[in-house]
Computed example of a mutant assay.
Amino acid sequence: MKKLLILIAGGVTFIIALCMLGPMIGLAFSGLLILAAMYFYTKSHTTFSKVIWIILGVIGASSAIANIPAIIGIVAVVILYVLYRKWKDEEMTVEHRSSKSNDPFTNFEREWSNLTK
């Protein structure tokens, strides 16, 4: 039953992530435009080129604001990743170590407990 619920939740989040693929690409493109504008603004020397890069940065920022719904898609991708990790989670076995080992820290703890008795 648990695997069925994970499968259904994974299907729903996959559909949401697929529907938000366009805004996520637009947000990534506008982020790259902002980064490029900031980079070239710091490299430019003339006032005209700085104004041009500021205008391109504002265009990128307005495009990023328009693509805010892409955050829903990003959250859906993160949830899909978490559900995938839950799906692949296998029962872990714990190995029991014997008290007689060659580990110096274990030996120290054992000897210390014998000395403080």
Rank of each mutant, 00 (worst) to 15 (best):
T13G: 08
F14Y: 06
F14M: 11
I16A: 07
A17T: 13
A17L: 06
A17W: 14
C19P: 02
M20T: 14
M20Q: 12
M20G: 10
M20P: 12
L21G: 08
M24R: 02
I25L: 04
I25G: 03
A28S: 12
F29R: 09
S30W: 00
I34T: 02
L35V: 06
A36C: 11
A37C: 14
M38Q: 03
M38K: 07
Y39P: 09
Y41S: 02
Y41T: 01
T42K: 13
T42F: 09
T42I: 14
K43Y: 11
K43I: 08
K43S: 12
S44R: 09
S44L: 07
S44D: 13
H45M: 04
H45D: 15
T46G: 03
T46Q: 04
F48K: 10
F48L: 07
S49R: 06
S49N: 13
S49I: 02
K50L: 04
V51W: 13
V51S: 10
I52M: 01
I52D: 02
W53D: 00
W53M: 10
I54P: 01
I54Q: 04
I55R: 03
I55A: 09
I55N: 00
G57S: 03
G57T: 00
G57C: 01
I59Q: 00
I59G: 04
I59S: 05
G60K: 00
G60A: 02
S62K: 10
S62P: 14
A64N: 06
A64Q: 05
A64S: 13
I65V: 14
I68G: 00
P69N: 06
A70P: 04
A70N: 01
I71V: 12
I71A: 13
I71F: 12
I72L: 07
G73C: 00
I74N: 12
V75I: 14
V75R: 00
A76G: 05
V77R: 13
V77Y: 12
V77K: 15
V78N: 07
V78M: 15
V78G: 13
I79V: 09
I79M: 13
Y81G: 15
V82G: 03
V82Y: 03
